[in-house]
Design a protein around this nucleic acid. Sequence first.
RNA 1: GCCCGCGUGGUGGAAUGGUAGACACAGAGGACUUAAAAUCCUCAGGCAGAAAUGCCGUGCCGGUUCGAGUCCGGCCGCGGGUACCA
Length: 853
Amino acid sequence: MTRYSAADIEAKWQAAWDKADVFRAAKSGDKPKYYVLEMFPYPSGRIHMGHVRNYTMGDVIARQKMTTGHNVLHPFGWDAFGLAAENAAIDKGIHPAKWTYQNIEDMKAQMKPLGISHDWSREIATCHPEYYRHQQSMFLDFLEKDLVYRRNAVVNWDPVDMTVLANEQVIDGKGWRSGADVERRELTQWFFKISDFSQELLEALEGLDNWPAKVRLMQENWIGKSRGLQFSFERTDGAGEIEVYTTRPDTLLGASFIGISPDHPLAKSLAKTNPDVAAFRAECAKGGTTEEALEKAEKLGFDTGLTVKHPLDDSWELPIWIANFILMDYGTGAIFACPAHDQRDLDFCRKYNLPVVDTFFALDNHKPVGNEAFVPPKTEKVKWVNHFAGLDVATGQEAIDATIDLAEKDGWGLGVTKFRLRDWGLSRQRYWGCPIPVVHCETCGVVPEKKENLPVQLPDDVSFDQPGNPLDRHPTWRQCTCPKCGGEALRETDTMDTFVDSSWYFARFTAPRAETPTDAEEAGYWMNVDQYIGGVEHAILHLLYSRFFARAMHICGHLPAEAVEPFDALFTQGMVTHAIYENAERRTDNGRAIYHYPEEIADHDGELVVRETGEKIKVIPSAKMSKSKNNVVDPVTIIRDFGADTARWFVLSDSPPERDVEWTAAGAEAAHKHLTRVHRIVTDIVASDTPTSPTEDEALLREMHKTIHDVTGGVESFGFNAAIAKLYAFSNTLSRSKAGTHTKRQAATALVQLMAPMTPHLSEELWTMLGHDGLVTTAAWPVPDEAMLVDDTVTLPIQINGKRRAEIDVPKDMNKAEVEKIALSNDAVQRALNGAAPKKVIVVPGRIVNVVV
RNA sequence: GCCCGCGUGGUGGAAUGGUAGACACAGAGGACUUAAAAUCCUCAGGCAGAAAUGCCGUGCCGGUUCGAGUCCGGCCGCGGGUACCA
């Protein structure tokens, strides 16, 4: 008897697939196409369990589709530009390109043994000029179609390193290398006009039936459509007005002050003459740019001393304050505050001793406003103290609509629809990204590079010995000729956000070597992605940007109209998480936490310590595996010790794919044991010669058909863990069955085929062992016999008052009255009834009986 | 802060509004073995009970329903996103 040796089997069958070239995709007329795509990885250098989980899921889908008559495209590539490469350049002195390409090689070497059905002939890397030249060319198309523009926007500025920081590089408001207080600073930057598509991107969400509801909801909220009132408060000094936008115009009677953003034109102009305003603005500019940082920052205010008039009452004056929590990017950069009915406004008023206009709702037990605002839900009816907008009693929404109507009728305001979605800033002041193909000319201004001059290629000779963008200080790279006037000009040194790279790679995969960004015929055939799979952390940005990009590409003729929603079905897998081990005794020189790899940790009598030094460890429970936290677990050892099939089986079993899983080392061994057992079960069957036994054979075949049915359903609906549970159960059934050898071989064949998408190498081996020709990878998927799926009798639980008390076996199609009669004559029911008649009897055919006593 | 999600035995988890705990891991007991490993068999939510059985039980509080892990409302805890990590 041969033992299961993953190493031998896996190398052998991978070679066989290569030889038969089974995963190379090509257009074909005779089969429906199926494009399955996993989100491509960032080449960090090591694959981790999250990758294995992601690609294995995609592989199960791809392989199962191959065997159900589909022409499958399953490509792979690298999201290769990014910040980490520059950090490596700074920390280790390696050139970002060298680091990236080396990582790609390393990760490929770790990926290949997994036996994923990727078509490697289509491999792309976004940092390759052959990729980004098409991206530059599309940027020029977008420019021509007015989908790109420049304006000022804020960045995180490190005043010590004199450099722009990513949000990730701002920790508690300080630069991660310098430790200096970060400031917000304005730069002129490039933007995609994604906000022009707000309404369309919102509406089209409804059609995405095969996307998770939560992702659609998150995008809907992100786009954030709102209808509100836009109107102006006139300044009492006659020097103009303050325009505000509010989604709660119904609270206008409670207006207590006007707040403007520190970046509001009025605040800026006051700062020119008033040093206190300038100082306050500088104070507000401290800290990072994230919405979280802005929202959580301590609320600060500054009294301008100016006042405005209430639009409904000329004698009602309100003060104008500058407040740090008001964003210039949303609405008009100015608001009115209603402290009686908004907690944040109330807190602000209490802090700065501003007068608070009392509640204007007629509350049953009215008390003057204390430190708690009364916030009725938009759908709740409230009664007014005074008639307002012609209303006496109304819900918030009715009041909002009525107020807008009133304002429009009386001519002092306008109902306006706004979106939260902002334009997509794509400028990055960094080296390792796709250069933005424009030049700056003294005479012509900003001029697009000529397409024939693409790619605008990154220079290789750059240094990272000082902070900032190396492109800015490169001795020659910037110098170029103006494409318009032919005079001397300077290249743009901003590169593109890496989200641009990942917003169209799925389209490039359909024709990865085409001379244009896409090939109309190939894109027409392969698009859309039928099944897209990736981490839920991409629910908003990547997926929304891609939806925009597909529309923009369509406008420029790079994608057909049907491809504006590029992902027909989306599955968001959960993350593989792991505890983070923070050193509790030591920090870095500039006070940052030190994180240790799981393998550096030892357990000393229940206390976790650093193995080498014995330093105590603070365990941070469970978080997304992240390089910066050193909590990434490496799957390579599992593959080496147990083989790819074990790793694949293991990541699919036990946890539902959409759920986060906490990584544990235990379990891989168990998965391997099971595969060994399947190998032994099949080996034993092949060697056996048991005569047929009608009842045993029938029982086994019934189980086989049920298993085929359940596993097929599981695989097609991402219920991989449930499918694997069925396969475990069926292995048990098969191994204990007394059926004849002929039937057992049939059952073993089904088992091997059903396992094939998950454990393709082992399945190929056993397929051959069972005497089948060809590859199980291309053999037709088994189909269950419907007649074998239904049992003649069913076991019905009997509940008394909703609690299970007994069960009865009845023929499956027995009518309700019969079932009720049998149920009522049951001992447990008789006991519960104690001679009385039941109040009610519910019979759900084939399901349950509930007797109410 | 805001948006989204999740919470079930010692552990991972299963369960179209219909028998809560399938299938596994760890555990206990047994068979085989000189012994161990491997393998096979059995047990196993908690409490009470010899057992039959009864009561409790899906983060907490409340609601809808003949029936709630599942639907609704309110909390608590954890995770993701928060526009320059990808």
